[in-house]
Design a protein around this nucleic acid. Structure first.
Length: 220
DNA sequence: GACCAGGCACATC
DNA sequence: GATGTGCATGGT
């Protein structure tokens, strides 16, 4: 692994690891969580998933067959509930039409086939697709998110507005493709991001702060 | 009461 | 291709 990325990983792991991400009883639940967490705090996603479980709506068939307003009500705590109800249904449509609603059958397909399919689903963009691929389908894809870009650009490792795909390739070229390592690396970035890398950076106690170059601008 | 959260699609220039 | 906007709840 490229030295600076290994150094980042070691520092984060020492502080937060092992994280054990992604939480969820089934691959389908993980995929649902990936859609619900779009621009949303995880705490609120948990509430929505709890509702889905209580309402017996945590299956592709149930999500497609129940009345839309009932699905929306269950999703309410996670915000954007009208949008997310449609997006969840799009994903379930895809899962049923391609794999008979079976995450196990989906997982059996190769990464190269799955990624374009997922990106074609309405409401699934690059990050959500890669969350599903890595954590639900267990494919070695590096997940890039807002924190990944902020942290690396603030540390002067990559340019500030590096496109998603470029940043993903940067990691995949410089970190050995190991499923467990990819899962843990992204999870750790989220942990550090939550604590230290929101809009106003609080770098004082950040495990990555010592790697900051002198005079490196730290604001986006 | 303001600000923000692990995005995405769509419109417009 | 870049930039702006709507979507919505709940925690800090």
């Amino acid at each position: 692994m490229k030295r600076i990325l290994k150094d980042f990983y070691n520092r984060m792991e020492a502080r937060y690891g092992p994280t054990g991400w992604w939480p969820g009883d089934t691959a389908f639940e993980i995929a649902v969580g990936a859609v619900l967490t779009q621009n949303t705090a995880w705490l609120n996603v948990e509430k929505a998933i709890k509702n889905l479980k209580r309402e017996k709506l945590l299956s592709p068939k149930a999500i497609l067959e129940c009345p839309l307003d009932r699905l929306e009500t269950a999703l309410m705590p996670s915000g954007y509930f009208r949008v997310k109800a449609k997006r969840l249904r799009s994903f379930c449509d895809y899962l049923i039409s391609h794999y008979g609603g079976s995450m196990r059958r989906m997982k059996a397909r190769p990464l190269e086939a799955l990624r374009p399919e997922l990106l074609d689903v309405h409401g699934i963009g690059p990050e959500t697709a890669d969350d599903i691929l890595l954590y639900a389908c267990e494919k070695p894809v590096f997940v890039v998110d807002a924190y990944t870009r902020r942290i690396l650009s603030r540390h002067g490792v990559v340019k500030q507005h590096i496109p998603y795909e470029e940043l993903r390739q940067f990691f995949e070229h410089n970190v050995e493709p190991d499923l467990t390592l990819y899962k843990e690396y992204h999870a750790l970035i989220v942990y550090v991001g939550k604590d230290f890398c929101r809009r106003a950076p609080r770098c004082a106690d950040c495990p990555l702060a010592p790697t900051l170059k002198k005079n490196q601008p730290i604001l986006d």
